[in-house]
Design a protein around this nucleic acid. Structure first.
Lengths: 207, 207
DNA sequence: GCGCAATGTTGCCCTCGTCTACTTGGGAGG
DNA sequence: CCTCCCAAGTAGACGAGGGCAACATTGCGC
């Protein structure tokens, strides 16, 4: 006997169609990219009519926003775990950066959806909350890594540079821009460490 | 009387349909984003049938690849001009970085097309050449800015970090990820200078 | 001049997003 | 326990886009 929160699946009245649709969309994104996420296909996968999704999502963009939100939550989880497993704040910061890049490489299509303008342009408050959580985690980690140094302004400056590096590297990897370049031989993890080393040390500092 | 290279526009045989189609696509991208670039709409704008474009582009992706190529060429031009106008190699490097970001902000949809995987996945040799030109320009500028320092490996390390920062910042701006953040008050130029300062100085160097 | 290949055209099919109108069934109020 | 109502699902239609196939036109090479 199912718990009261889990409604029975009857022919009509799926029970938790919204969840099922998001899961189907997730699978499609990972397997075939964002353009494969089609309201009709998602409905087909779940076994409902082509109009059923509209009871739960205003349009295709709303479904993709839900997918993006899910991705941001997963990223947040991975980032905080990565930080937690490190002994000191500095290595925690580095771990966050590496994890960000590896997450993108592991889920390229998902990463793309998360950062698409359609997603952030949407005013879905849940999505914004998920995005804010990741940003806050980043700035806090930066702030902790620089205990007692400069003020908040400097923290924001550092956060911008750090976010830009990892996001840029992630994007370049995901979009295959490093494929036919000298970097192709190195693993994403190595590349992330390389870029973070340079960022930490400074570009024009002679060794 | 038109020059021999410019063929007459007859009812049939447009003259330079390929060029016209690319221009139309360019306008659509800038005005309404990549999703607005539709083979049919482009054909309509140029005044040919909905199938005419297929004589010049294998499919929609090929048209977008041509658009991307055009963008990369424009970027290359702007970057080399920016570098040329600077007195010394160091400020040239900085100017390149800032120009990269400003280009992206000035042509967001175009920038997105240039970096989309569909584009770089395409094995169009012209597109690859355009992309390589930009990459080469970047690494050369880096190499010159560090005259007589370390070897090629170090140059590549620095190039990766530099490219990642400017590309990441450009992406974040273009996708609106900085919109609801403390950075929203600053101009793209200021942000680019901020990030490049941090990169140059190093993340954990106390002032 | 003539014929052929490049370039355009018309028509068709399929899929997709989304609108409107209809159906079902489970739970709240009597 | 019955009933009625509204949320959830269904059915069909429309217009638009991508892409195939078959046909039309031209102008260049011979």
């Amino acid at each position: 006997m199912p718990s009261p929160r889990v409604k029975r699946k009857t022919a009509y009245h799926h029970g938790d169609l919204r969840r099922a649709l998001i899961n189907a969309a997730l699978r499609l994104v990972n397997e075939s990219g964002a353009s494969a996420v089609t309201l009709r296909e998602v409905a087909r996968m779940v076994g409902v009519s082509h109009q059923a999704p509209y009871r739960h999502f205003a349009d295709r963009a709303a479904l993709l926003a839900a997918v993006a939100e899910e991705g941001l939550r997963a990223l947040h989880t991975e980032l905080s775990q990565a930080a937690r497993n490190e002994p000191d704040v500095l290595s925690a910061l580095r771990a966050c950066g590496v994890t960000y890049v590896l997450f993108a490489v592991a889920h390229p299509a998902h990463f793309r959806v998360m950062n698409s303008a359609e997603a952030s342009a949407s005013d879905d408050p849940d999505l914004q909350a998920a995005s804010d959580a990741v940003f806050t985690l980043l700035t806090q980690t930066i702030a902790e890594a620089r205990v007692g140094a400069e003020g908040e302004a400097a923290t924001l400056e550092y956060a911008l540079a750090a976010w830009s590096v990892v996001h840029g590297l992630a994007s370049l990897l995901v979009e295959g821009q490093l494929q036919r370049r000298p970097y192709a031989k190195k693993s994403p993890r190595e590349l992330a460490n390389m870029a973070l080393d340079t960022l930490r040390r400074g570009l024009l500092t002679r060794a």
